[in-house]
């Protein structure tokens, strides 16, 4: 796991909505001129743009080998995977590296004081405790805010950490147990394709309407 921080060159601006992604490409022929999309993990208040990247394939490996000071092409932010302030009760379902857009949104909303008016529940599934990204940062936001709660799930190991109580895959049963009622809440799902597809199907089966669900799959 690696977080890359970029500063704009010359007059470029860093205007984006937390939850959006940017298209990234190399200036030379590394990664054969390919373009990849990565969610932005920083917030608009930051003076830099951060991308948090898991080493998965050739492209992300090349990113992991970047040297400090190197330049990259980064597109205008795109995507509409973010909540509206009018959504009072929001549920984030994150699988692994799928946490990145949510982290940006949560941090931004905390910075802007929106967590006093809007309720966010984050279900965050990881394989192991070591793989939980932003663990400390999320807890720092959750501890003083009664309206923001994180439910951590681990699928491959058990720990004695008091903050982590669930050791299973994320399913609607777990979500229902925590939320009691699904109706009227807005669901955002982000993670690997299977994670997103399964939860989308299950939520629909449990009566959640299509316009209350937003998805973003990482592939």
């Amino acid at each position: 796991m690696l977080t890359l921080k970029f500063s704009p060159v010359k007059s470029a601006t860093l205007s984006f909505e937390p939850g959006q992604f940017a298209l990234v490409s190399f200036l030379d022929n590394r990664a054969a001129g390919k373009i990849r999309a990565y969610s932005i993990s920083s917030v608009p208040q930051d003076k830099f743009l951060a991308l948090t990247i898991k080493k998965l394939g050739a492209f992300s490996s090349a990113l992991h080998n970047l040297k400090i000071g190197e330049r990259m092409n980064i597109s205008f932010p795109a995507g509409n995977f973010y909540p509206q302030e009018s959504m009072k009760n929001i549920v984030f379902l994150a699988g692994g590296i799928g946490i990145t857009p949510f982290y940006s949104i949560i941090k931004d909303w905390a910075n802007r004081g929106l967590l006093s008016r809007n309720k966010i529940t984050l279900f965050y599934s990881s394989k192991t405790k070591k793989e939980i990204i932003f663990f400390k940062e999320l807890n720092k936001i959750a501890d003083p805010s009664p309206n923001f709660k994180v439910i951590y799930l681990l699928t491959r190991e058990k720990t004695k950490d008091k903050r982590i109580k669930k050791f299973s895959r994320l399913n609607v049963k777990t979500i229902k147990k925590q939320l009691k009622i699904l109706k009227g809440k807005y669901f955002f799902i982000c993670g690997p394709i299977e994670f997103v597809n399964d939860l989308w199907k299950e939520l629909k089966k449990n009566g959640v309407k299509e316009n209350f669900i937003k998805t973003e799959a990482f592939y």
Binding site: N80, I193, E194, V196, N197, W200, K201, E210, N211, I213, K214, T215, A217
Partner: peptide, 17 residues
């Protein structure tokens, strides 16, 4: 604007991951 790939795949009866 809120259409999802999952909805298309469902209508197609599935698509390899």
């Amino acid at each position: 604007l809120n259409l999802k790939p999952q909805q298309i795949i469902e209508r197609l009866g599935g698509l390899p991951e």
